[in-house]
Write a protein that binds this DNA or RNA. Sequence first.
DNA 1: GCTGGAGCGCAAGTTACATCA
DNA 2: AGTGATGTAACTTGCGCTCCA
Length: 232
Amino acid sequence: MKKLFLKHDHFLPSLLSLAPSFDTATRTHAIDAYHQHQASSSFSNSSVKKERDLGDDQEVVLERVSSRVVSDEDEDGSPRKKLRLTKQQSSILEHNFKQHTTLNTKQKQALAEQLNLRPRQVEVWFQNRRARTKLKQTEVDCELLNKCYETLTEENKRLQKELQELKALKLTAPYYMQLPAAAGTLTMCPRCERVVNVGENPSTAAFSLEQKSQFFSHFTTHPSATCYANFL
DNA sequence: GCTGGAGCGCAAGTTACATCA
DNA sequence: AGTGATGTAACTTGCGCTCCA
């Protein structure tokens, strides 16, 4: 049992330049495995399994560090530079992605032919595109949550301050003389359970004597800043 | 009907290269 | 020219699903 470990990014050139210590059959097995890869549209786990099952008496293990190379090679055997999709290819892919974010085999094949790419490349592009979309959405969500957090923190601060004021107010009657400034605050009376957006209408900032009187009678029984708003 | 292996597609994470400031 | 940051093509790994013997 022979084990052949190949730790190269570009494993066909490695195979072709295998040390003479490996016999022809071994090299042939390894090269066959390479061609199996090339024929495969997907570099999935299954293809790895195939690599590891090449013969009865000889086991050629292609230990890939990276297999990106499989067809990323020029005819002269030198590593091909990383593919950059053209603007036209990208826009067509984008257009298709807008229509459906996943592709079935036929769609993938057709798109690959249209773009003069391998189906695997189209597949990878869609996978990466979905990942980018998800990442962007996560960033947007994160930003939104941060804003919510900031708003709630501010609201909390304001309410805490309001609470302090009310506590102080409670000690210094009469209430109607020191109405809390709670503009723009959503508050609820714990007794009558009415929610009011305090200060929604700036025109109500000024109290009439009658309003103050009403407020006073209510507030003495319901000592809450919320109830102050009920009289606006 | 249940089971295990093969095959496939996907998400998540990583690597490596191209490009740009 | 050299370099770090960024974008992205291509990859690996793990999981779930379906099909079939």
